[in-house]
Amino acid sequence: MPDLDRHTNPLVPTMVKVVKIIEETPDVKTFYVTTDEGIPFKVMPGQLAMVSQLPVGEGMFSVSWQAEDHLQFAIKRVGLLTEALHEIEPGQTLGIRGPYGNGFPVDECKGKDMLFIGGGIGLAPLRSFIKYCFAHREDYGKITILYGARSYADLCFKKELFEEWPQVPNCEVFVTIDNPEEGWDGHVGFVPAYLEEINPSPQGTIAVTCGPPIMIKFVLQALEKMGFTDDQVITTLEMRMKCGIGKCGRCNIGSEFICLDGPVFTLAQLKKLPPEW
C-alpha cells in the first residue's frame, strides 16, 4: 500500500488548501493554494498543474505565479469544473498534481529585451514569466508588456497592470480594450493592431505571446512583419488534457505532447509541427 501522504504516483493528486480568492474580472478568479508544509511543489514560469475539485473533475491550468508560500492560479469560468471552482470559498481543499510541461526558457532569455503580448486570460501564464523577470530584474533588458481584453472589466490583474508594473525600472506597459467605453481613456483596438502601432524593435528582443487562438495567429503575423525571426517568438499552446504526463494521448500535436513537451514552443518549433493548433 503506497504512502498516501508521500506517494509518488504522478496521476494521484496531493491535497492543498485554498487560502485566498481574488476576483479579477466578472469571470476570472485567482486562487491561492498551499499546504501546511508550504507550497506543494516548485514550478517554473509557464509550467502547468492539474487542479481537481473532488468530486467534480480535474483541469489543467497554468500556474500564474509561485509565491514563497503559495501557488496562484488565475482561472476563467468556462466549463463545468471552472464553474464549480468559482463557487468555492477560502478553506476549500483541492487536489493538485504537477508540475507539468516545460515552462518558459527563462535562462535562454537572459540578457534580452522582453516583449510580452497577452490577450484575455492569456496574461495568466505570461504573468509568471513577467514577475520572474521582475524578480531577476538585472538579468533582463527592457521589458514591454502589451495586454488587451474585451472590456475594462475583463482586464486581469488590474492592480499590477496599472500601478505596480509601470513602476518597474525600464518597463513599459500598454493596455488596450476591444471597444470604446465610458470612463476608459486608454487605447482602444485589437492587440495585433496595437502591436503594429507600438512597432517594437526585434533587435535583441524575445516576444512571448499568449491569448485566444485568433489573436495569437494575427500577433504572429504582425511580429513576422516587424522582422522577428521564428526563434525570437515564443508562445504557449493549449489542448484538452487528462493525464498531464504524456500518456493519455489527446494533447498531441504531431509527435509532441503539449502537457509534456509544451506548452511553451518557439515559433520555429511550431512550424515543424502539423498546423493543428
Binding site: 498516501l4 504516483n9 491535497m15 473532488l54 468530486p55 476549500q92 481543499t93 483541492l94 487536489g95
Partner: peptide
C-alpha cells in the same frame, strides 16, 4: 480505478490508491 476519495464540505482527501 485509480484512487478513492472522500469529499465532505470543504474537506477532501484521497483515501486509497488502487494499484
Amino acid at each position: 480505478n485509480m484512487y478513492k476519495f472522500i469529499a465532505t464540505g470543504k474537506d477532501a482527501q484521497v483515501t486509497e490508491i488502487v494499484t
